[in-house]
Amino acid sequence: MTSLRTFVPLLLLALPLPALAGTVKGTVRVPDTVRSGRMNQGYWRLENGNVPVRPSSRKAGTVVVLQGISGTHPPPPRTVTVEIAGLTATPRFVVVGPGSVVEFKNTGKITHELSVPADETLMPVERLNPGTFRHQKFGVPGGYLVRCSEYPSLAISVIVVDSPYYAVVDDKGAFSIPGVPDGKATLKVWAGGRWAHEESIDTNGKDLSIRIESAKSANQPEAKEAEGTGKEGDSEGKEPDPKGSAE
């Protein structure tokens, strides 16, 4: 018994110590189409000329996720409720661990038909009448855009992460992920309803500056690039919507 008492501390000392932890922080600059809150524009968008245009109340829903860090565990599964009132979902994006359940609750007067268009086998179109709810489990890490087929502006991003290191970008585009072990990691950015950016980084506490040149419309199938295979899309150089915008 004595030998055991002396052995345990030695064993603890022999285990590899975790690397030094730091904070990964930076700024994400998303395209104007994402920041403007208007992903799907018509032909015209004109200022009224009398009162200043207010900033959008719709959060861009940009999330930065660090993946590929050894020795980390995904967040535990949980149940999150998304309340849909009229044509507004609250929250408009959720970040959960694998196996989590999202409850879509229709508290408004409008009937919706929710699905994940990029993966209708996971979540097929189903009518969600006022006053009813729908549970949907998301088991595999990735990004999922849940959308109403009748009112496509109603879109909810469900980001399933297998790492506890993620952060939601604030209104100024800044993010900060504390307690990240030093080493190599893959940084992915979910913006505009898709994986918009991915890069390998050294998590040594440096400030990062990430610029996403453009964002495709959120109905693009990139949202299905969820299982850790997301890569920088063909988002360079091309504007997503060449139609005129007078903003």
């Binding site: 809150g37 208007r38 968008r45 009224n48 200043p52 245009v53």
Partner: peptide, 12 residues
Amino acid sequence: ELIDDALRGFLS
């Protein structure tokens, strides 16, 4: 989006 835009001050 169109309503949100209008309430922010856009004609669209």
